[in-house]
Design a protein around this nucleic acid. Structure first.
Length: 549
RNA sequence: GAUCCCGUAGCUCAAUUGGAUAGAGCAACAGCCUUCUAAGCUGUAGGUUCCGCGUUCGAUUCGCGGCGGGAUCACCA
């Protein structure tokens, strides 16, 4: 429809010898302005030397409209041309929802682009805390959106099980181990204070007793044990949220295969790196940074920048055409260095999309929930899931745009009432399911979609609330596409809320189960279409949609 | 001090990526259940979109300058 109109309008512009401009359609906010609007007349007004409404008039006069598609074309406001869909067009289009059902909303906008999505990537030195939830769910939903738009997505988790942090982990466990055995052993200055360290130490005692007491500085057992313990827990937490990574990429492979030294040499050859004070420096100032950055410490160990750069290069080498990273705002400083490094190696950074989300704060009603790391008792993501449930966690973490700080109200999230937006959405789905169950007692097989289509007289779908609802449902594929391409999953929650709202209004105005068999059938079909869209949307959101509440 | 993000109704946030009368949810007030799920619906009230200047037919959106909040500025990741 859009494409057709676009073509026709472009032809008219040419015929009128107006300069050619892109004909773009928007969906007006206000119902009175129709279903599609274009601002071409305003764009042209100046060049043509006429006022926008006159320009619009001249265009509309040439327009041939097919009234099975459009019921009205109007010039409005400063010079908008507004189009209103005919009901028959809306209803006809809506049949696609039934035809495609579980795939309705999928498009090929990504045209099979090989995409690497990296997120979570927490090192196995501890548990995921509640704040990690935002990243976990953002990545999950963005991954789903990319799949729904035809990207070929590899979900990846990058981790480092060597270096400082892991040594600290081992040292922390060892210290707790000795203390649990009754020794007065010092706890490392920057050690991990969480109580899970004590749990790990106790497990080791249960298995090995005090046999590791005099390890003579060798902490490898503790490190390995700690790493495996933490990773197991992290994966379990992710699994509760249905998050599953395809690849766990170990930073160490970058060393063992020589990718790190390769980058250093290449940088030096290009005069992008130099030795000084016993360290190797990256000429970040060449890319506008305020000072150069160390990439290899005087101890010989690289800083995080170097492996990050090598890692991104490997992503390109592995054939990915789109590379998506999700980071919290606390990592913001590292991004320019990595991008500059990758660019210096000859790759186009426009194929790297870095999504930075702002931090999360937790409140419980009026009370601020602290999750200080100094505190031994941290609030973990598991704790949060236990408290509010998987669905609320999934929904709440993506319902705000990534650029804003997210305030997560635990009291609201666990409230099973209309205040809670998750329940509002799920309730709409359950309500429809309930209606469909009633239909089955009327001997209508609502699961046989082909039969539903065949038995429905679509011309009976004509109430305003029904048409409004179908229009809303028909926005779904384009919305999914737009959310995916702009990496803005929160807009999906906004949309689904509107769907639920539009459905409730329809439900309130029109009785579905009624004595007029044909009318009932038509309305059941509308219900089924709505159910399909809500279910598909929920699947993208990783939120369940219950048949009963 | 520098860099990045944010500033919209009492609170939490949207706003189709520059469009028309800035919208939802909570909270407040007033209505609607003998009938498919009231976890719902309808209505009322609530605004100098932080301030100023600019760009243009048109700015919450873009640019510049302030003010306020957050994050980051390691030979930690």
């Amino acid at each position: 429809m859009k494409a057709q109109l676009q073509q026709q309008l472009s032809a008219i512009l040419a015929e009128l010898q107006y300069p050619s401009v892109d004909v773009i359609f928007d969906k007006p906010k206000v119902d009175a302005h129709g279903d599609l609007t274009t601002n071409v007349a305003m764009m042209l007004a100046k060049a043509v030397g006429k006022n926008p409404r006159q320009v619009a008039q001249s265009i509309v006069e040439k327009l041939k409209i097919d009234d099975s598609f459009l019921s009205a074309v109007e010039i409005a406001g400063p010079g908008f041309i507004n189009f209103r869909f005919a009901n028959s067009y809306v209803v006809e289009s809506a049949k696609n929802i039934l035809r495609e059902h579980a795939s309705f909303g999928r498009t090929q906008a990504g045209s099979g682009k090989k995409t690497n999505l990296e997120w979570v990537s927490a090192n196995p030195t501890g548990l995921l805390h509640a704040g990690h939830g935002r990243q976990v769910l953002l990545g999950q939903v963005i991954g789903n959106l990319l799949e729904w738009t035809g990207h070929e997505v590899t979900r990846e988790y990058y981790f480092n099980n060597a270096g400082n942090q892991m040594r600290t982990l081992a040292e922390s466990i060892y210290s707790r181990y000795r203390r649990e055995l009754g020794d007065d052993y010092p706890f490392p200055e920057e050690g991990y204070k969480g109580e899970y360290i004590v749990d790990i130490a106790k497990e080791i005692i249960a298995q090995k007793g005090d046999s590791l007491k005099d390890a003579d500085g060798d902490r490898s057992y503790f490190q390995k044990y700690g790493e495996e313990w933490c990773f197991k827990r992290i994966k379990e937490t992710l699994a509760r949220l249905n998050v599953k990574h395809d690849v766990f990429y170990n930073e160490d492979t970058l060393y063992s295969t020589g990718k790190i030294s390769e980058v250093i040499e290449e940088f030096k050859k290009k005069d992008l790196a130099y030795d000084s004070e016993g360290a190797v420096w990256f000429r970040a100032t060449k890319f506008g940074a305020d000072k150069d950055r160390v990439i290899v410490k005087s101890t010989g160990e690289p800083t995080y920048r170097l492996p990050d750069i090598a890692y991104h290069r490997e992503k390109f080498r592995r054939g990915f055409e789109l590379i998506v990273d999700i980071f919290g705002a606390d990592h913001i400083a590292t991004i320019p260095d990595v991008l500059n490094g990758v660019q210096a190696l000859g790759y186009d950074t426009k194929d790297v999309k870095v999504i930075i989300h702002q931090m999360v704060s937790f409140v419980n009603g009026d009370e601020i929930v602290k999750m200080s790391k100094r505190n031994a008792k941290t609030y973990t993501l598991d704790d949060l899931i236990d408290e509010v449930g998987v669905d609320a966690v999934a929904y709440f973490f993506v319902m705000r745009s990534v650029g804003t700080h997210l305030e997560f109200d635990i009291a609201l999230a666990k409230e099973q009432s209309d205040k809670n937006p998750v329940y509002y959405l799920q309730y709409a789905h359950a309500r429809i399911a309930s209606i469909l169950r009633h239909a089955e007692t009327e001997h209508i097989n609502v699961h046989d979609i082909a039969a539903m289509m065949a038995n429905t007289d679509f011309s009976l779908i004509r109430e305003k609330e029904e048409i409004d609802l179908l229009k809303k449902l028909l926005e779904f594929p384009e919305l999914v596409q737009s959310c995916a391409l702009s990496f803005e999953p929160h807009r999906l929650t906004t949309y689904l809320r509107e769907v639920a709202e539009t459905f409730h209004r329809f439900y309130h105005e029109h009785r579905v189960i009624n004595d007029v068999k044909q009318l009932m059938q038509a309305r059941l079909t509308v219900c089924l279409m709505t159910k399909i869209v809500i279910a598909n949307g929920c699947r993208i959101l990783s939120v369940s949609c219950p048949e009963k509440m």
